[in-house]
Nucleic acid binder design. Structure first.
Length: 98
DNA sequence: CTACTGACTAATG
DNA sequence: ACATTAGCCAGTA
């Protein structure tokens, strides 16, 4: 039986991230659950080739952004119409999936 | 094979 | 709210 190739998992992650509607955000854990991998695997996929997907719509479980892209992500989210509050996103309001 | 690192998460003090 | 610890998973040396 074929196991999931690394590229296959990456595609699943990208697909889930692209599914996030504008003005909404998701978390590494949520995406990981959808594709059936751990949150760290999601982060690695985005860090590797997230340039082709709206990676900025993916934040941490507490609504904060990751360090290496923190400022950039908050800026992009604000530009998408996401209410950012003190460098933090309200997952209760813009969290996805509901 | 072992050790280290990292765009993570949850629990604890 | 913040710092620390433990758990987890994949890539790289």
């Amino acid at each position: 039986m074929e196991r999931q190739d690394p590229a296959d998992v990456d595609e699943a992650v990208y697909d889930a991230v692209e599914d996030i509607p504008s003005g909404r955000v998701s978390t590494y854990g949520a995406i990981g659950r959808l594709v059936g991998v751990g949150p760290r695997r999601v982060a690695r996929a985005l860090a590797q080739g997230g340039g082709a997907v709206p990676w900025y719509r993916v934040v941490r479980a507490d609504g904060t952004a990751a360090e290496p892209v923190r400022a950039r992500q908050l800026e992009l989210l604000a530009g998408e119409g996401v209410p950012v509050r003190n460098g933090r996103v309200d997952l209760h309001t813009v969290g996805w999936p509901d």
